[in-house]
Design a protein around this nucleic acid. Structure first.
Lengths: 368, 368
DNA sequence: CAAATTTACTTAAACGTTTAAGTAAAACGT
DNA sequence: ACGTTTTACTTAAACGTTTAAGTAAATTTG
């Protein structure tokens, strides 16, 4: 009886104050513990009381225990955090990152956990602000170089962590791919086709990125392990083919976008002697290189061979389709997520894992 | 003096018990309130004490107030939830969804909030489980049809909500696009080229999706408003061109993937008379249709015209490039996010907004 | 110099839950 | 009929914070 509060629609959904366990308990005339049990351990009360509680809850507009209260008490946020070095919105721009997230989200769903995306980029406030204020049970750290102070913030939080694409800090579980193997396979492939004049388009090398040719010292100072490994792979294969690594220009792009790749290629292709093959650290960069080549009237692979890295789905559909190094992005994300979840459950996350890469030869490479 | 606990590395990072405000307070010999103030209101204590507190915190491995405790007390989770109807991992598979998320994440970052991805799909547990247990301050509801019980779960939580691509329930703010206008422009374009024999490839029409031709009754029963609007747009334009809507087969795909689009096209193109033009509700489906046409030896646009919907970036790069209806995915996400945030801050989220669509004519359409 | 203000803290309640431990009554076993 | 187990609850503490209100001492003010 009485006025049903639901019957009188409030102006805006969401404006109504949420009811609490306590209020429901008062309404029914039982203790809060019993109401809590109604939701969490039905066997602890009579069926009849349980329905009465649910009725009262509905009457009061109570939708079940508040996740925050519950999380605090249970000491489980029910979510895993993915830390991304840059602005979050960039992550959605990079197909490789998106595939990685697909894998992580699969693992999270599997375990009934939510996915909390944590921005690392200097947004509103100080370094690591996002990390320090995220309600999560653990972190998957993606695309953050070992030197980044963000890592410090993560470690400080003393939550389980999985580092992706960066070597195990001592005692932190990690997962990565065979960057060096993939890169050297790429360069070997070009060398095998007869190329001797190479150029490389790289990610940013340090936390203070530069745009332009990177000398040897700068290459050495790269603090992203995947970047280092790929450069090493190129170097090994190129030297094995009898060419000099000293002679191959490495252009550093501050961001991993086709635009940057294009700008890089325009510089590299303007040099003498003009390189006959360009190795890029990502497909995104490679797409830009292709565009630059088109703009300069160079035919691919006739005048210029290009090989990318990542094998994002678009790589198969460019004209010509891009020769590139495949890496299992989704699987990497999935395994990273599972390793983290294993830690959450007190299980052994297993050894640091290196997933295989594989050269995929398509149409962007040919003899010079 | 004494043993510095930090000097003795624990076996695994993350295993160490987190210190609390209380412990830091005890260590320094002050009240918890003071320690809290050291972090949140530096003006409330002397600089000297503040440093001492931070030193003690560092000594104990305290990385600042726990987000959960803080959120509970402040009644702010510090995150906005994005509810996606399907499995989360599917979201990352759909370029349109990814762009939308890019927009939302931008808005979240702008406001210093995290992004919590909430799975709607029937994962571990019951309907709305994810919704009911997500620690968020509000929801952006994406890709969920008005009829879905998930919406009920969201409403029940009485948090601020923004509905995307679905008409305002009374008193819920929403944002969408001009689906009908875009669809009719697409069909008009084809009619203007002289086409009279159409077919449509649609998303799933109801919560219980079917794969196959959908009769008129089923079309009418579609419960996703964007689907309904697009079909309505096609119908209007096709009838305006003097053709009969009754004659255009509508094929329903249970999922929005190229594979489903391909299967649909294979059926549609096997019918007599063979349609000369296919309208698809998304680019993903259109890609599948193109593949099917290729498989059947039909040339595009010679033997078959195709127009998609969404204008994802890949649409510009297929061969031939796809004629499609552009919609501002990123902007839609951005505005959805901002509307939600406005509500969180007690501001007016503004009127339900309809963003414009625009036909982008490329190479996949021509006269029959 | 006494009163008023400011500084630098502390006290205690609240945020919304879960859960171990306790209790009183009902049901059971012999 | 009496001890034992089971059922159906309640009590109270804890989870880690923030913050309004309070207090005592130091400083300023007229």
């Amino acid at each position: 009886m009485g006025v049903n509060p639901e019957s009188k629609k409030s102006k805006k959904v969401g404006s109504g104050r949420r009811a609490t366990l306590k209020e429901v308990a008062a309404e029914v005339g039982v203790s809060v513990a019993t109401v809590s049990n109604a939701y969490n351990r039905p066997d602890q009360l009579s069926e009849e009381l349980r329905v009465r509680i649910f009725e009262a809850a509905k009457r009061l507009g109570y939708s079940g225990p508040d996740p925050l209260g519950r999380s605090l008490r249970k000491r489980r946020a029910g979510a895993i955090g993915v830390l991304y070095a840059d602005r979050l919105s960039y992550a959605f721009t990079d197909p490789a990152a998106v595939m990685f997230l697909e894998g992580v989200s699969f693992a999270a769903e599997e375990a009934g956990l939510g996915l909390f995306l944590v921005p690392g980029g200097s947004g509103t406030s100080g370094v690591g602000e996002g990390v320090l204020s995220a309600s999560v049970d653990g972190f998957v750290v993606y695309c953050v170089s070992a030197a980044d102070p963000l890592i410090g913030a993560v470690i400080e939080r003393r939550l389980p962590v999985v580092l992706v694409d960066d070597p195990s800090r001592e005692s932190v579980t990690s997962i990565g791919i065979d960057d060096e193997g993939g890169a050297s396979a790429a360069a070997e492939h070009l060398a095998g086709l007869g190329h001797r004049s190479f150029a490389v388009v790289s990610f940013k090398l340090t936390l203070e990125p530069d745009r332009g040719l990177a000398d040897h010292a700068r290459q050495e100072s790269a603090n992203n392990e995947d970047t280092r490994s790929r450069l090493r792979g190129y170097k090994t294969a190129i030297e094995a083919a009898g060419a000099s690594w000293e002679d191959v220009p490495v252009y550093e792009c501050p961001e991993n976008t086709p635009e940057e790749g294009k700008a890089a290629a325009e510089v590299l292709l303007g040099r003498e002697p003009r390189p006959t093959a360009i190795l890029t650290l990502s497909d995104q960069l490679a797409f830009g290189v292709m565009e630059a080549a088109r703009g300069l009237g160079l035919s691919i692979p006739g005048d210029l061979s290009i090989v990318g890295f990542d094998d994002v789905s678009e790589a198969a559909r460019t004209t010509p389709p891009l020769t590139t190094v495949y890496q299992p992005h989704v699987e990497k994300g999935l395994k990273a997520g599972r390793k983290l979840i294993a830690q959450l459950e007190g299980e052994d996350p297993g050894e640091p894992e290196l997933l295989p890469t594989r050269l995929v030869v398509r149409g962007s490479t040919a003899s010079p």
